[in-house]
């Protein structure tokens, strides 16, 4: 195998592990973002409905109604938006920089080549193990990812109480 082919193989392996671990974190990032957006839009919607109820001018009421519909549509779109289906998450963000760093200026002597190949393997090893580790920690400590509301609910349930719905 030529030097370039060796580096190309390591580069591909690194890219695969990067994409796999990044996809997982991107999905949860997008989900969190969506949640925030939905909360914001719902708040605006409630305000609009209130304004609409107190408005006497029928023309203005109509515009309010239209705006409310638009926001409802946006919320529905966001709810239907499932990042798991996103195809863009199967690609690495900025491959050109990585490719340039990995696949240019190969060292001349064999020892340095081996060392750099080993370095690339270390990086993909790190990324893979870090992802697996985080998955395990999350699995065994479900409380880490729970939000405050869920924690309160479960704490109440432990003593046989139920948090009132609001």
């Amino acid at each position: 195998m030529t030097v370039k082919a060796q580096f190309l193989a390591s580069y591909k392996q690194l890219l695969r592990s990067l994409i796999k671990s990044n996809r997982r974190s991107k999905i949860s990032q997008i989900n969190e973002d969506n949640k925030k957006q939905i909360a914001l839009l719902t708040y605006r919607k409630i305000n609009l409905v209130r304004q609409q109820a107190s408005e006497v001018d029928s023309k203005k009421r109509l515009t309010h109604l239209q705006q409310t519909h638009e926001i409802t549509k946006l919320i529905e779109n966001l709810k239907a938006n499932d990042p798991v289906k996103l195809k863009s998450l199967y690609f690495y963000d900025s491959p050109s920089r990585l490719r340039h760093t990995v696949l240019h200026d190969f060292p001349s002597d064999q020892a340095s080549i081996d060392k750099r190949l080993q370095h690339l393997r270390d990086i993909s090893g790190f990324i893979k193990n870090q992802m697996e580790y985080e998955q395990l920690v999350e699995r065994y400590n479900p409380g880490l990812k729970m939000d405050q509301e869920e924690k309160v609910k479960r704490t109440a349930a432990r003593v046989g109480l139920r948090v009132p719905d609001c």
Binding site: S21, R24, T101, H119, I123, V137
Partner: peptide
């Protein structure tokens, strides 16, 4: 240490959850 810089950047850009735990940033 160019690749290390890339790894660090990747680590900060791809935190799995928005609340950060001590184990999320080993490098």
């Amino acid at each position: 240490r160019r690749l290390l810089a890339l790894v660090l950047e990747n680590e900060w850009a791809n935190l799995a959850s928005l609340s950060i735990k001590p184990h999320s940033l080993p490098v």
